[in-house]
Design a protein around this nucleic acid. Structure first.
Length: 565
DNA sequence: ACAAAAGCTTC
DNA sequence: CTCGGAA
DNA sequence: TTCCGAGGAAGCTTTTGT
């Protein structure tokens, strides 16, 4: 792992993507098969292949505990190091001294060896499994005792290398290293769900054309977000498909030989959480790979996403949940039928194939769609409003000639959304950021007003530019409040500040929640702008939040049934 | 036996 | 999921 | 245009602590 760490440092030091790819390609060329397999996975920011259900179940807590045991840091030392870098791996690396003794009998820690040890950690379960996991982790940290190695081992465990390179560039580096076709490498990665396997196949020239492989999920095609009301460019030049944007869980179905599996966007097999859908899919007579959205649906109406939370991650579904959270799988694409791969066919053709494939039933439906050429902005907006009136999140626009580009987010597919509303709130506490935001106060807890009290309702991080964050950091440092002013539910790292900075915060949904004092929380909060012009007295009130919440409930309950599905 | 804590995964 | 920044 | 990095809220599962 010494060389892995050294290469990672170099990659981090070179901002140019091309340089990063070149450095990584060169490193890949020097590795034997076992190390290549592991290193390619590690560089894409994960200890295991994407389609590997194993997890380490080791987080910051355990790492700190073990690191303390191995190197004996005290808390103050550690938190200072963490403050400097905002990265646990970097913080530990900074504290580790070069080993004094040669450690002659130490096992050399190679990527392949680390991979094997990760396997041991993942395999631990049952009583005292934490102890077992920590023991293996200790072995790893003792073996990788040199500062940069400790840093990168921990970064791999926490799932974030933060060297400005991830799976996308790793695939480019693989292509470069072994003189393989970039498109073939990308497709290989989609087909196998394992960057390591693709690296090996590229090296040995066994990278095969993607083919229909039931049971192995294909990467999902993604859509580019577009904000409602914007100037819509380039719409006139093509024929477009419109579909409602359903607020549920994206899922890929593999129907084969009278059985079916469902895979999530993260390529996990989630069949166990949606048994009635799997059962219905299994009754489809032809083999096929389908793409669609699992939604909570009652009486033909799509229910809000929060209903699905009870299904998410659930390993077994008993009768009460089946009834409390009725679901349906709304299918909008077909990637393969029988032995025929359809991803290069235009959407219009895939849609025809889909229509012939099965008749809709209670739990498996066809997504309704309409087609139009020579669009004007007014058409788009009208269709968006209609989708909203049907109780759906927004509108999907897909070019009729679009192929299914696995794992890509391009201009073929657009998703049109609009935030529910915005609130003017005041920042009452801040926190230091992590990673590249480690030097700034980038994390803002904000509140609404209720009479003379300020009640927290959420936290926001994104939406401000680096310059704005830097400016606010200085202001917050100058207007800190004593620790005694910390709110009751505050995390230890929260720094209370004078409630003077007013933000306009946009969000998608307000929901009831115990997390914050207001009794509400926001979905996808983001900062629209700093309201220098607004005094504290004019921020939004809890009353206003309640109104928005009531309006939202009314919208959910009313409206016509979801049409066409 | 129950609650809390940590980790994971979805949006 | 969101956003801004960089190449 | 594409990719990366940083961070939010919720609920499930497993393990540990009381």
């Amino acid at each position: 792992m010494e060389r892995f760490a050294a290469v990672a440092e170099q990659i981090a030091a070179h901002p140019s993507k091309l340089d990063k790819i070149a450095l990584l390609a060169q490193y890949f060329r020097t590795l034997d098969d076992a190390d290549l397999l592991a290193a390619a996975r590690f560089f894409s920011g994960s200890p295991f292949a994407a389609r590997d259900r194993r997890t380490l179940a080791v987080g910051g807590r355990s790492i700190v505990e073990v690191a303390r045991r191995v190197w004996g840091f005290d808390d103050a030392e550690l938190s200072r190091a963490y403050r400097d870098s905002g990265d646990l791996g970097a913080a530990l690396g900074a504290l580790v001294r070069e080993p004094r003794d040669a450690m002659l009998f130490r096992d050399r820690l190679t990527p392949a060896r680390l991979d094997a040890l990760f396997g041991e950690i993942a395999a631990a379960s049952g009583k005292r499994s934490n102890r077992r996991r920590e023991a293996v982790l200790e072995e790893i940290l003792r073996a990788g005792d040199a500062p940069p190695v400790a840093t990168y081992v921990v970064k791999i465990i926490t799932g974030d290398l933060r060297v400005g390179l991830r799976e996308g560039l790793v695939l480019d580096a693989i292509a470069r290293a072994f003189d393989a076709d970039t498109v073939a490498v990308r497709r290989g990665a989609m087909a196998s769900g394992d960057v390591g396997a693709v690296a090996l196949a590229s090296k040995h020239g066994t990278l095969s054309e993607i083919r229909v492989d039931y049971g192995t999920p294909i990467g999902f095609m993604l859509a580019t977000p577009v904000t409602y009301g914007e100037v819509y460019k380039d719409l006139g030049s093509a024929v477009w498909h419109f579909e409602d944007k359903y607020d549920g869980i994206r899922a890929q179905a593999h129907v084969c030989g009278g059985a079916a599996r469902l895979f999530s966007r993260g390529l996990n097999d989630v069949s166990a959480s949606y048994p009635e859908v799997v059962e219905a899919l299994a009754r489809i007579s032809d083999d096929a790979i389908l793409d669609g959205e699992i939604v909570a649906m009652r009486d033909g109406r799509v229910q809000p996403f929060r209903m699905l939370q009870a299904r998410l991650q659930r390993k077994s579904v008993e009768t009460p949940i089946l009834q409390e959270v009725p679901i349906a799988y709304i299918v909008f694409d077909v990637l393969a039928a029988g032995d025929e791969l359809l991803i290069d066919e235009p959407l219009a053709v895939r849609r025809e194939r889909l229509a012939e494939l099965f008749a809709p039933s209670e739990h498996v439906l066809h997504a309704a769609f309409e087609t139009q050429a020579e669009l004007a902005a007014g058409d788009v907006n009208a269709r968006f409003e209609a989708a909203r009136a049907r109780g759906n999140e927004g509108l999907m626009l897909k070019r009729a000639d679009s192929p299914y580009a696995p794992g890509r987010r391009g201009k073929w597919w657009l998703k049109l959304k609009r935030e529910l509303s915005t609130l003017d709130v005041v920042v009452i506490a801040v926190e230091w950021g992590n990673g590249k935001r480690s030097g700034v106060l980038s994390d803002y807890t904000f509140a609404v007003r209720d009479a003379d009290r300020l009640l927290t309702i959420g936290k926001a991080y994104s939406g401000l530019t680096d310059a704005e964050i830097a400016e606010l950091t200085q202001w917050f440092l100058d207007h800190r409040l004593p620790r005694s002013r910390q709110r009751e539910k505050a995390r230890a790292s929260e720094i209370p500040v004078e409630p003077r900075v007013v933000l306009e915060v946009a969000f998608d949904v307000v929901q009831e929640s115990d997390l914050h004092e207001s009794g509400f929380s926001l979905r996808f909060p983001r900062i629209v702008r700093v309201r220098d012009d607004k005094p504290l007295e004019e921020i939004d009130t809890l009353q206003r939040v309640r109104e928005i919440y009531r309006e939202m409930l009314a919208r959910e309950g009313a409206g016509p049934k979801a049409s066409g599905v």
